[in-house]
Write a protein that binds this DNA or RNA. Structure first.
Length: 221
DNA sequence: ACCCAGGTGTTTC
DNA sequence: GAAACACATGGG
């Protein structure tokens, strides 16, 4: 493989996806705070279910001008009430507790969203959630790795690991360190995965991702 | 009746 | 470390 082969391949994939799908305008949230709530709610959960929870939360905002209940509102609201509101997003007891603890930590330290170590120290915030917040709320150039990224990258033969740091390094070493690029790339991966790669089982005969990814990379070298 | 969804923390070998 | 398990709703 040529020295720059891997790099060219990754750039080609991005350009191809961008040309095909266009800008995705992520994260689907109106404010940084709403983005962070969504990041926690969407853990191992379909986004359509998270939307139901987000919409329920919007119903409790204090003023019509407020797009979303404040950090303080979430932090101080009765636990049972929050559980009920976010119930459609699944794991609702865990998530209600973790959301309130996160909200309290944020009130105590407003710089939390731009500090990776602090984010990771929060209960219920792992590497993907932390990096999502760094990228989509704090606009830092951090590449987000999720189940789709691993699945697509692995099946396309880009890499052969599931280890978070390794997959992240793979992309960051092959791309300029730009938040806008990482933002768009991750969103495009999700978009692609939702359309063509709907099975977890790598041996799934009907999963068209092998063929589609070959298509996506055709002409890349 | 399955399988899947934009993970994380805990327990156990 | 890595593997297994709990956490829970809703859609295909």
């Amino acid at each position: 493989m040529p020295v720059n082969g891997g790099k060219a391949r990754v750039r080609f994939l991005y350009n191809r996806l961008y040309k095909h799908y266009g800008p995705q305008r992520w994260w689907p949230a109106r404010t940084a705070w709403e983005m962070m709530v969504g990041a926690i709610l969407t853990q191992n959960t379909a986004w359509s279910n998270v939307e139901k929870a987000i919409n329920a939360l919007r119903g409790v905002r204090a003023h019509r001008s407020a797009p979303f209940p404040s950090v303080e509102t979430i932090a101080t609201m009765p636990r049972r009430r929050l559980e009920k509101l976010i119930r459609p997003s699944g794991y609702f007891r865990q998530k209600a507790e973790r959301l309130q603890r996160f909200a309290r930590a944020l009130l105590k330290d407003p710089s939390l969203p731009r500090r990776r170590e602090r984010l990771l120290a929060q209960h219920g915030v792992g590497p993907e959630t932390a990096d999502s917040i760094l990228l989509y709320a704090a606009h830092q150039p951090v590449f987000v790795v999720d189940a789709y990224t691993r699945r697509i990258g692995r099946r396309m033969g880009l890499f052969n690991t599931d280890e978070y740091a390794e997959v992240q390094a793979f992309f960051q070493e092959r791309l300029p360190r730009e938040a806008a690029l990482y933002n768009e790339f991750h969103a495009l991966i999700v978009r692609l995965a939702k359309e063509v790669c709907t099975k977890r089982d790598p041996t799934c005969a009907v999963c068209p991702v092998q063929a589609d990814c070959a298509y996506a990379l055709r002409g890349s070298r």
